[in-house]
Amino acid sequence: MPLTGSRDRTSSFLDQRVLDVSARRRETLRNLAFLSPWLLGTGLFFLYPLASTAYFSFTHYNGFGTATWDGLDNWRFVFADYPFFWPALRNTLWLVVVMVTLRVVAGLAIGMLVIRIKRGAGLLRTLFYAPFLAPPVAGTLAFVFLLNPGTGPVNTILGRLGLGEPGWFNDPAWSKPALTLLALWGVGDLMVIFMAALLDVPKEQYEAAELDGAGSVSRFRFVTLPHLRPILGFAVITGVIATMQYYTQPLIAGQVASGQIGGSGQQVEPGYPAKSTLTLPQLVYNLGFQRFDIGAACVIALVLFALSMAFAAALMRRDSVFLGGDG
């Protein structure tokens, strides 16, 4: 990477030398001017609060008065004594393994499907993409209703077909699968990305493979997949990062399905049913804005930060394109 600003490289080095000093200063000012919104924003809304979160994690603070130094007490509490922490982490792991995988597989399958359809592909693409845009609160409410064990249309139909009727959002064993269905409903973003990537695969390679007598399975295996590898990686890692931030859907699903939606005077149990929909971001809200145990909430926030940054680093390492394009 060049160390100084861009210059007309054909000019003579000596002629430019005097000009350089002031030109470089001007350039630095220009750079700062263009970057200023982001520099300020990063300081005010990222670095400062991050440092502050780290500080609070070592204090006892309930939002009144001032914070008092507490050493590692909050860290010990969260890791050893906070009964929601490990279930939330386990749920996150479940969602990473099952939900992210299924979303990637479904996105690819639906993308391949739409590409193979000759007539009406445009309409299908539109229909399949639309749910992705449904506001999360609305989509979640819709699914809690659709999957309501007592009166929901899904169980009504399953019942009429004589099939089993799961408890969905009311059964700890089915609540995460229900959330996964909701996530699959909104798989349109991945579908579109995969469609673009699939269309990029050179036709000649398929033809060559066919000439070699490769069936559709081995054509997929040896031609399509290698081309999709970078996109698959991108989809998995962004999926994992989105799972780290998974908040609105499990929160609303738990509240609405439990029948206790935070009416005044009601104790809202996070993660209904039986902590099965808890995620780390919900713990930040529970500790920070319901119990006002700001120190412990900041510990969770830092754990969340560490996990997210680890995955972000993985993304940047494997996808140098992300940073590159230096031309």
Partner: peptide
């Protein structure tokens, strides 16, 4: 760069410590 950011965020950090 980091120093500049630190300076920028200093007023807020100080502000956060003042009592109610």
């Amino acid at each position: 760069l980091l120093a500049a950011i630190a300076v920028l965020s200093l007023p807020l950090a100080v502000g956060a410590c003042t009592g109610d």
